[in-house]
Design a protein around this nucleic acid. Structure first.
Lengths: 112, 112
DNA sequence: TTATCATTCAACCATATGGTTGAATCAAAT
DNA sequence: ATTTGATTCAACCATATGGTTGAATGATAA
């Protein structure tokens, strides 16, 4: 019946745009205000503010007021939700190529 | 300057729809034809075919002709591209909460 | 209080997206 | 050669998305 999982719609939808991924990258490195962010892009401030709002609705970032400005923070938990979902596909497929699995195997057998 | 990275636009865009995520999940478990997949959803065959086409353009699945049918296969490498991208944000943020990092630390120190 | 800076809101526009139906193609079976 | 089954294509529709501009709001500084 396709459980709607609106959260994932918003998260992946937010990640589907290069400007928003770039904003998320900058914000992952450290806090920024909207107008600081806007300087990097060839579009209006309002357009950047909309992108930030999309990221916020997806739960990928939060805004905190600080004086006149609003400071954008990354919300790493939400990124992990998306990452966890992707690993579901890999688990279903039975791939388990990744380094984590390799290390787990090594740990189990005591190998190095 | 926001490197467009069209591939990621398509991958995350494809994942932003619940029907497509469900198709990807089913296909991750095993091969399916378009009309098999279509039985699960309350929409026309053509609509499902469009969703499959979006997944294909993103490189998340491939179609192979087999007689009259076309069989859909998952393309796990592409899922890993998306997963790797997500882990970039986490690395930028400096989080490294995950089990992989823990194990790496244990391996480095020889702990168990 | 007024001016200023940062952000948001509203209206608008063009294009993309997700769905429909009906016709067209492609491969196999009769 | 014709029929049947599976998929694709084309035209169409409604709504969402990504951008614009100009006005409104919020918070500080003068």
């Amino acid at each position: 019946m396709v459980e709607s999982n609106f959260a994932l719609d918003l998260i992946f939808g937010a990640l589907a745009d290069a400007t928003r991924r770039d904003i998320l990258k900058r914000v992952s490195r450290g806090k920024h205000t909207i107008s600081e962010l806007a300087e990097f892009y060839a579009m209006s401030l309002a357009a950047v503010a909309k992108h930030v709002s999309v990221l916020e609705k997806a739960g990928l970032i939060t805004k905190r007021r600080s004086g006149k400005e609003k400071v954008i923070h990354v919300e790493p938990k939400t990124i992990e939700v998306a990452a966890a979902h992707l690993s579901e596909y890999e688990q279903l497929w039975g791939a388990r190529f990744d380094a984590l699995e390799k290390l787990l195997a090594e740990n189990r057998t005591g190998g190095g």
